[in-house]
Design a protein around this nucleic acid. Structure first.
Lengths: 214, 214
DNA sequence: GCGAGTTGACTGACCAGTCAATCTATCCAC
DNA sequence: GTGGATAGATTGACTGGTCAGTCAACTCGC
């Protein structure tokens, strides 16, 4: 964990290349290109321009490299959802913020999101199992937003919040998957549109028919 | 392919155990339990109660076993969608039939659906790539149903049909994933409810606000 | 000259796929 | 109906290649 070296005045940080970071960044590219199982540790080392053994200086195993990548990013997302959740906003905007964050994450670093989704989030037999509690945490918070909206009468009560959360998250992830597989057009405007569409579609189906009366 | 032996009068078929089938069935259980990459070919042979080498008598490779399982089932689904598509039904009912079929498939053989989803449909770097055209075919037909409904004015036009198809299919697959991961309650009544919820949610969001006028 | 950082050849385990041997059902010649 | 031939089904020990992880040696800044 303790990455700080305390050796230099932080200003000269550039001069000391962060090999650990280089390895993580290289791993993202390699995992995205070849997949976790299909790639060799030497592929990561080569991509990082680093000796094979150095990876084991910074990480105890190949698995741990992927886990680190996942936990880093997923942690940011959980924090973001928690942040959004704590504010008092309409459910539609909360869900919109979450959709935005996920889509922006993809737009900003498609490889990383591909790796997280393909190798962790959807890998029910390997890392998905290992990090189930983290993943579950996200679903839980989304479900809470839905429950809250149901209590406020904004969302229909007959739709189970757990299911709604799954459907919402699933819709987003599938759109990302569409981009990952190259099945859906990408680009700034498509990303923006996707955010709206997902929220529009899912919230449209969840909201009570007559938003005027009570 | 030619499984017929022509040796017996088909009535005594029971006496001739279908090893090929036994291997496929065993593979489903093993893949579901351990995952494709984590299991060994000998695990499949053991589970099928068959010698190691026999698997290679019926299949050219371990990969081919999984591909066979996927193509068998996915083919049935494509045929079913095509069938539904050809009838003249409201879009909501068409999508409902598709959701029903997928959920029923899971209810009927959870292991098989788990394998198909986890190891193929969502495996962007391995089998998902290999069978992309098959997978794409399903998305395409769902998108066509949406397009048709948009032309009829039943669905909003501002939502891209491709995206809608992805969101719809993604919502279902995520609900299955919830069951697979043990995050969502299972059982006959939950399965029935899930069908309604997915259709209700997604169609609710896609349909034009005022279905009365026009 | 100390130690963290770095190197890459090597090892041990694992496992997909091969193959020669064995088994069994069916058929035919007599 | 008996023996033997034939071919497909079945067996499992073995091979070859792969690759995660180890470790002894080297570098270099302080």
């Amino acid at each position: 964990m303790a990455r700080r070296v305390g050796r230099v005045s932080a200003a000269r940080a550039k001069a000391v290349p962060d090999r650990r970071r280089a390895i993580l960044d290289a791993a993202v590219r390699v995992f995205a290109r070849q997949g976790f199982h299909a790639c060799r540790v030497s592929d990561i080392a080569d991509e990082a321009g680093v000796a094979y053994g150095l990876l084991y200086h910074y990480f105890p195993s190949k698995d741990e490299v992927l886990s680190t990548l996942f936990l880093e990013r997923w942690g940011v997302m959980l924090e973001m959802i928690r942040e959004v959740d704590s504010q008092s906003l309409p459910a539609r905007e909360k869900l919109g913020a979450i959709a935005s964050f996920i889509v922006d994450s993809y737009a900003h670093d498609p490889d990383l999101m591909k790796v997280i989704i393909v190798e962790v989030t959807r890998a029910a037999n390997s890392f998905g199992q290992t990090h189930l509690s983290q993943i579950r945490e996200a679903y839980k918070m989304i479900a809470e937003i839905v429950t809250k909206a149901q209590e406020d009468g904004v969302f229909k009560r007959e739709i189970d919040a757990q299911f709604a959360a799954m459907a919402f998250y699933g819709a987003i992830e599938q759109v990302l998957t569409g981009w990952i597989f190259g099945l859906l057009p990408q680009g700034e405007e498509h990303f923006e549109r996707a955010k709206q569409l997902v929220v529009e579609t899912v919230c449209g189906g969840l909201e009570t028919p007559a938003p005027v009366s009570t």
